[in-house]
Amino acid sequence: MGQAWGFGRHGGPEVQEFFDRPDPVPGRGEVLIRVDVAGVNPLDHLLRAGLVPGLDGGRPFPLVLGMEAAGTVLALGEDVDGLEVGDAVFGFALTGGGTYAETTVLSAANTARIPAGLSATVAATLPVAGTTAVDALDQLGLPAGATILVNGVGGGVGRAGPPAPARP
């Protein structure tokens, strides 16, 4: 039994709460992780407000917030290759599964080991914001060696990575 942060009905921030829930069990093609860091995204409040029907995976309330996380593999479901218990990983949660919890299940197909030298904090920002940024650049179809000016970089997509150092 672990704790999770989510909501028991749709609404504003006032419906959010901690609640106890059994640790999820990974199924075929799934990975159970202990969550070290969870990403925060605009989709979280849209899901909580009920503005994206169907994105909850048909799961009953309470639902856990969060779509991306980094952590340590605790268990593997059937047909999971390339990952092992104890690996430090990052990835997407299953639809409606939520990452604002002590443990969560990730889709093994959307989970990878954290590369050496990359912190869990940065890795947890990559599944949603990082892939959104890469997708946007891919859609531009720029030739090799092209230069692009990104004006007004902000938010998770524009500024993935560790926080800037404090100024003296």
Rank of each mutant, 00 (worst) to 15 (best):
M1N: 08
Q3T: 13
A4V: 04
G6A: 08
F7N: 01
F7Q: 04
F7R: 07
G8I: 02
R9E: 15
R9L: 05
G12Q: 11
P13W: 09
P13L: 13
P13M: 05
V15R: 03
E17T: 15
F18M: 12
R21W: 03
R21M: 09
D23A: 14
P24Y: 00
V25R: 15
V25S: 13
G29I: 07
G29Q: 10
E30W: 09
E30N: 09
V31D: 00
L32Y: 04
L32N: 06
I33G: 02
R34C: 03
R34L: 11
R34Q: 14
V35A: 03
V37W: 09
A38C: 12
A38R: 01
G39T: 05
G39C: 07
V40L: 15
P42A: 07
L43W: 01
D44S: 10
L46E: 14
L46R: 14
L46K: 15
G54P: 05
L55F: 15
G58E: 10
R59D: 07
P60L: 06
P60N: 07
P60M: 01
L63Y: 05
V64E: 00
L65S: 15
G66L: 06
G66T: 04
M67A: 14
M67P: 00
E68K: 09
E68H: 09
E68L: 04
E68D: 15
E68V: 05
A70S: 15
G71Q: 06
T72C: 08
L74P: 03
G77Y: 05
E78Q: 13
E78R: 15
E78W: 03
D79Y: 08
V80A: 07
D81H: 13
D81F: 10
D81C: 00
L83F: 05
E84V: 09
E84R: 14
V85H: 02
G86P: 12
F90P: 01
F90T: 03
G91Q: 05
F92T: 06
L94F: 00
T95P: 10
T95G: 13
G97W: 06
T99I: 06
A101P: 01
E102A: 11
T103S: 13
V105D: 04
V105C: 10
L106E: 04
S107A: 15
S107T: 08
A108H: 02
A109I: 01
A109R: 14
T111W: 01
T111G: 00
A112H: 10
P115T: 02
A116N: 03
A116D: 14
G117H: 00
S119E: 08
A120W: 01
T121Q: 14
V122C: 03
A124R: 03
T125K: 04
T125H: 04
P127Y: 07
V128N: 10
V128K: 00
V128H: 05
T132C: 04
T132N: 07
A133N: 06
A133S: 12
V134W: 14
D135K: 15
A136Q: 13
A136H: 12
L137H: 08
L137G: 06
D138Q: 13
Q139N: 12
L140G: 04
L140V: 09
G141I: 07
A144E: 14
A146C: 07
T147Y: 10
T147W: 12
T147G: 13
L149M: 11
G152R: 09
V153G: 13
G155C: 10
G155F: 06
G156Q: 08
V157D: 09
G158A: 11
G158M: 10
A164F: 11
P165G: 10
A166R: 15
